[in-house]
Amino acid sequence: MIICVSAQDKDPGAKVDPRFGRCSYFMFFDTETGEFEAVKNPNLSANSGAGPQSAQLVSSKGAKKVLTGNVGPNALGTLTAAGIEVLSGISGTVKEAIEKNK
């Protein structure tokens, strides 16, 4: 399964970004291979609709679970429609978040 974590930087030791739609990076972790992939968030400075666009990106990467600090209503609606489980209120580092919520 692929887990996506909103992150403030592009490495596993980075802090979880409290925002989903406008986080700095998306960190994708593949539980089968143990590999990380960092994707810079192109929606960081979008005028509007950063949430749904970020959710679309996360869905296109095949993620089935999202770990983040806080997720807005439009992003949550999109993630849910895409069949992605969302866990909010997550803090600490990306690695810790994955360890606790695999």
């Binding site: 005028n47 509007s48 749904p52 869905s59 296109s60 429609a81 895409a82 069949g83």
Partner: peptide
């Protein structure tokens, strides 16, 4: 331009 549409090819 306003991100008002999201397309989800792999939906629930």
């Amino acid at each position: 331009k306003y991100n008002a549409i999201a397309v989800l090819p792999n939906s629930a």
